[in-house]
Structure formats: structure tokens, C-alpha cells
Simulated assay, not measured.
Amino acid sequence: MSLSTLEPYESYQQEYQSAVEDIKKCLVSGVGNNLHSLYLYGSVARRTARPHHSDLNLIIVTQDGVGDNWSTVFNTIKWRFQKEFPFITEVNLKKALVNEVASLDSLFSWGFMLKHLGVCIHGEDLSECFGEYVPSWEIAKFWNMDVEEWLSLYRNRIAKAENKEELVRAQTTIAKKLLRASYTLVMHKDKQWFDDPIQCGENFLRYYPDKNVDIERLGILLSGRLIAKRSVVGILDSYGTWLVKQYKKTEFKIG
């Protein structure tokens, strides 16, 4: 079964519609003729964003490498959005060259992202260069085989967090990663794709019901509640270690 795609023409949530239009104008003006296309991804693209919880995520595809003014463009956009759209937690901009995106080497990276995780909001839609995708271990391991590195990185960030905001931000980010990685572990069996972390956890439990407590704990981390550092690290060390081992076992079996 082919994976579903996001609806490109459906209106975004009321709070985010003007923000999407505003950032598109800023980037079209700031990048100029070098701009090939723009793509929105994440919860805003899925129309599930929550004010004061969700980021605004975009991919900027250019004809050639961006010049020295890129930092100025990015910093200006970030400053404007902090002032005009304070309910957006962060603006994330990814850059890519058109010849890198429209390439066979990008089948499971940019190709999958543009086809199934994003929507084109300006320019020529490069997702049309790619055919339909089906749930597979190749997709799962490309997107989440790095879970061991994420665990190490965020375990360190959580340990070094100096305030509530840093700690909550780190724990919610790693919770998202672990919930999504949990589902992609079984995606080749389940024959679906979910990007929403809660859906990922729920569908993963159909195959590993004994991990219910771990998934509940990740849901608590994802909620934004402040949890003691030692408790967060305990979850990463126990469930995270188990998940890494399962990925290695599955890779050994399937390859």
C-alpha cells in the first residue's frame, strides 16, 4: 500500500495561515532569483500545530549555494517572528540545492521528506520527481537508525540543562524521536506511516504491548511537564537501550 501525502491546498490552522504567508514573502524576497522552491513540513504542514508548542519548519531549495547574506536573512526572519508571532516556539530552516534534492541518491532522504512529510508552498514541486513510496525497512532505518546517537546527544543536553525551558525542550525533542523510532521499528510489518508521535506510540504497542509503561512515560515527557533529570535519564537508559538493540537485531535479520 502506497503511503499517503499531505494536502497541499487545504488551508492551515487559523493561527498559522498568516505566519506561513509572511515567511514565504520574506524568503522569496530575501533569497531572490536563487530560490527554486519552498516546502513546509512538521505539525503546521499536517495542520496539527499547537500555539506555544509547535515550531514552524521550512526547507529552502536554491539553484546555487546561498551567499554571505544568508545569516542576515535567517536572523531577520527569526527576530520578526519572535515579535509578530510569539506563539511559534521556533523557526527552523533547512537548506538544500536543487541538484541534490532531485537525485536518485536522495530517494530516502529529500525524496521521502518532500513526498510524504512536506508540502510545496512556492516554486516547482520537486516531490513530483519521485514515485509512490511503500512502508519499508529501508525508510525506517534511514530515518531512525541513528537513535543511538540521539540518545547520547540528548542525555548530555538534559544533564547540562541549566533551566526549566532547556530541560523541557530537550525532553520533548528526544521523546518525539523515541516515539517515532518505536513505530518505524514495526512499520515494515504494519504497512503504514505515522508522523504524529502519539499515533506512533499507540500503533507500536500493537506489536509490543509489554512496552506500555515506557510509551506512557514518553508521552509524559512529550506533554511538556517538567520531569526530574534523573527520571528522564532513567527512561533514556532503559527504554532507549532496548530500542537501539531492537534496531540492530532487525537490521541483522533484514539487512
Rank of each mutant, 00 (worst) to 15 (best):
D210Q: 12
I220W: 10
P209D: 07
I220C: 00
D195C: 09
L222A: 06
E202F: 05
R225F: 06
E216G: 11
G224P: 01
G224V: 00
G219T: 05
E202W: 05
R206I: 07
V213Q: 14
G201Q: 00
W193D: 03
A228G: 12
L222T: 05
W193S: 11
Y207F: 12
I227W: 09
G224A: 07
A228T: 05
E216M: 10
G219P: 00
I215D: 02
D214K: 05
R217T: 10
F204V: 05
F204A: 00
R225H: 09
C200A: 07
D196E: 12
F204I: 02
G224W: 00
L222K: 09
A228S: 11
R225D: 15
D214T: 05
F194W: 11
R206N: 14
R217I: 02
N203S: 09
Y208C: 14
L218Q: 06
A228F: 11
P209C: 00
E202M: 10
G201R: 03
E202Q: 13
Y208E: 15
F194T: 02
E202P: 03
K211R: 13
Q199Y: 11
G219D: 05
R225N: 13
E216Q: 12
D196T: 04
P197V: 07
N203K: 11
S223E: 00
I227Q: 08
L205W: 03
Y207I: 02
L226R: 09
K211D: 15
G201M: 05
D196N: 13
C200K: 01
Y208K: 13
R206G: 15
N203L: 00
V213N: 12
L205P: 11
D214A: 14
G201V: 01
D214C: 11
K211T: 06
K211Q: 14
G224S: 04
D214I: 01
P209H: 07
I220T: 11
K211E: 14
